[in-house]
């Protein structure tokens, strides 16, 4: 009886071992490198956030995007706001090094902020109560003119209400009387050459 059991077991083990295969190369490719896909970058100080892209290359030469991974770093948050590789200016000018790092891998680029040198509020005809779109346009150090989207705060008196939507379009509800509308840039940060706020008065009889 014993012999039969032992023989059966040894036979089973032999069959089992003979059937077993071994994978001889890793089937889960490892990380070979990571890189920021963008080159050194210049962004306008009042533009909306720009998304950088980063990718990983694996040992089997495949690649994947890693924008959402917790790998991003920024050398100067006073100059640049950053969230998961999305960058926008925090000050009017300057530059910051944006990098990614994971394990022993890293990559970095330089992001410089193009300075706003002058700006103005659009002079729409506001002559009756109602809703109007406010717009500020700036001139930058490279002589480009653009609509200002970020780092701009609108304020108004005389009970006027200003709302800014997700596309950075500001709408003011004007009531009768004199309404002072003020546009202030980079309100929360110290800039080397702050631009004075601009105030315009709209009169509705």
């Amino acid at each position: 009886m014993k012999k039969t059991i032992y023989s059966l077991f040894i036979l089973l083990v032999m069959i089992f071992t003979a059937c077993g295969e071994n994978t001889k190369a890793p089937v889960i490719a490892d990380i070979a490198s990571i890189q920021i896909d963008d080159n050194n970058l210049s962004i306008y100080s009042t533009d909306e956030a720009q998304t950088l892209t980063a990718s990983v290359t694996y040992t089997d030469s495949t690649t994947a995007q890693i924008n959402d991974a917790d790998i991003w770093n920024n050398s100067d948050y006073d100059v640049l706001y950053m969230y998961n590789g999305s960058v926008s200016a925090a000050s009017n000018g300057g530059s910051s090094t944006v990098g990614i790092s994971y394990g022993r891998f890293s990559d970095e680029i330089n992001v410089s902020v193009i300075k706003l040198t002058d700006f103005n509020i659009s002079s729409d005809d506001i002559n009756a109560t109602g809703d109007y779109i406010l717009e500020a346009t700036g001139t930058f150090e490279d002589n480009t003119s653009k609509v200002i989207k970020t780092n701009l705060v609108w304020t108004a008196d005389n009970g006027a209400v200003i709302s800014v939507d997700e596309n950075y379009v500001a709408t003011i509800t004007i009531l009768s009387g004199d309404t002072n509308v003020t546009a202030t840039l980079f309100e929360e940060t110290n800039t080397s050459a702050p631009l004075a706020p601009i105030t315009k008065t709209y009169t509705v009889n």
Binding site: F16, T17, N22
Partner: peptide, 17 residues
Amino acid sequence: YGSFNENFKSLDAESSS
């Protein structure tokens, strides 16, 4: 003492020893 065979569910990989 024994002999085993490991099969992965979502990987084409196998281990025996």
